[in-house]
Design a protein around this nucleic acid. Structure first.
Lengths: 215, 215
DNA sequence: ATTATTATTTACTGATAGGTACATAAGTAG
DNA sequence: CTACTTATGTACCTATCAGTAAATAATAAT
């Protein structure tokens, strides 16, 4: 048996064959960016391979095909950029501020790191093809439900704590908050000035907190 | 120069040349439906001409090209299906019921006439290409602003009438209502059960009515 | 060193995309 | 009638689409 020391894998099974020359996660991040900007049909294989820095056969062997790469990109987005609002929400102990932080973080993400203003991959690009590209609707449902669950849990806990009224409807509040995030993305992608959105966040947070039983 | 007799027809103006063999508005309606279902890039010329019942040269001579046809379709949608929520809003004298009627009419439209559930052409398909297809962003801005203006006017009138509190912020309320319509479209297109959306309408109407100054 | 396995590169495939040339048909104008 | 104008149908254009075959390169196993 040959010396495994040079591969830093003493006993384990080192992969056979030629090693991959590109970073899988990095390539996926680049593809996600392209889909975010151009949508599923608008992103060509040349756009994708160009941004990912790989050739077509590498893309196909690593990701399957365009459809599966798109699904991977949705999940990648959902666990990176798309997860930031939830992180901001969890980090804020005051529920009102948490909701505002959720919307603020969403807006920052939607504006991109350099003013690109692509909105939300999950909110705009994916739904356009949800009914025609297999797996997209399920993926959206899954990612949305996950965030919703986190919101509902927190809202219920606040209710138990007494910082929200007993008649507060956590499910409706969570839905409304998710919708408000989605709407920001829509407006941002349509070119609306983010300052206007930013200014409305406190009022919208109050609208979410007003989700209680009718009297 | 020849006299006006050339273009002056005794009994009504008749166009010269072979008359058009298809209905312009009907063809545009068919194209709108295709774009609504498939988006801009997802709708091929074959899809479009097939649904419109015409050949390519007829499409190009009547509508210019795919891009201009898409813009025409956005405006057509905005003044037909897309105008229904506003009509329902205007027809209802009670402001609370008007807001609920607005959202209900939007939901019906988004569900299509036969359960297609394409959401909203303006809310989902158009924004995907807003930054890349010339004229789309302007068209969206224009159509949105028109609806918003109608909402704000009514809300201001209600405020003057006393059926809304003096601190009510009509602009924010209108924005929130438009956003809620857009969110319904998003959820519908993603395959969500419309009954759940229908059930939330009263609560959301109350959220809109709660857009007043903070205390 | 030889073999097996996997990744990369180049070049290519058939299909389809959006758009158009051209001949013909159908009307008006004189 | 002939001339002119506009629309239609067929057939075609070039560019690009998503996807792949085949040769080569780089690693591990023997």
């Amino acid at each position: 048996m040959s010396d495994d020391v040079k591969n830093n894998v003493p006993n384990g099974m080192k992969k056979r064959g030629r090693p991959r020359a590109f970073d899988h996660a990095g390539a996926l991040a680049a593809a996600t960016q392209v889909f975010w900007e151009k949508g599923f049909e608008g992103a060509s294989l040349d756009d994708l391979t160009g941004a990912m820095g790989i050739n077509r056969p590498s893309l196909y062997s690593a990701f399957g095909d365009k459809r599966r790469l798109f699904i991977d990109a949705l999940n990648y987005y959902g666990t990176h950029e798309g997860a930031k609002p939830m992180l901001a929400f969890d980090a804020e102990p005051d529920i009102t501020k948490a909701i505002e932080a959720f919307l603020s973080a969403a807006l920052e993400t939607q504006m991109g790191s350099g003013g690109e203003a692509y909105g939300c991959l999950l909110g705009t690009c994916a739904p356009t093809v949800a009914a025609r590209v297999e797996g997209v609707a399920e993926c959206l449902e899954d990612l949305g439900e996950r965030t919703r669950h986190g919101l509902v849990e927190r809202l219920d806990a606040e209710k138990a704590k007494g910082s929200l009224p007993p008649g507060f409807q956590s499910g409706h509040g969570a839905d409304l908050l998710l919708d408000m995030m989605q709407c920001q993305a829509h407006r941002v992608r349509c070119g609306q000035n983010p300052d206007r959105l930013r200014a409305q966040i406190p009022m919208r947070a109050r609208a979410v907190l007003g989700c209680r039983d009718a009297d």
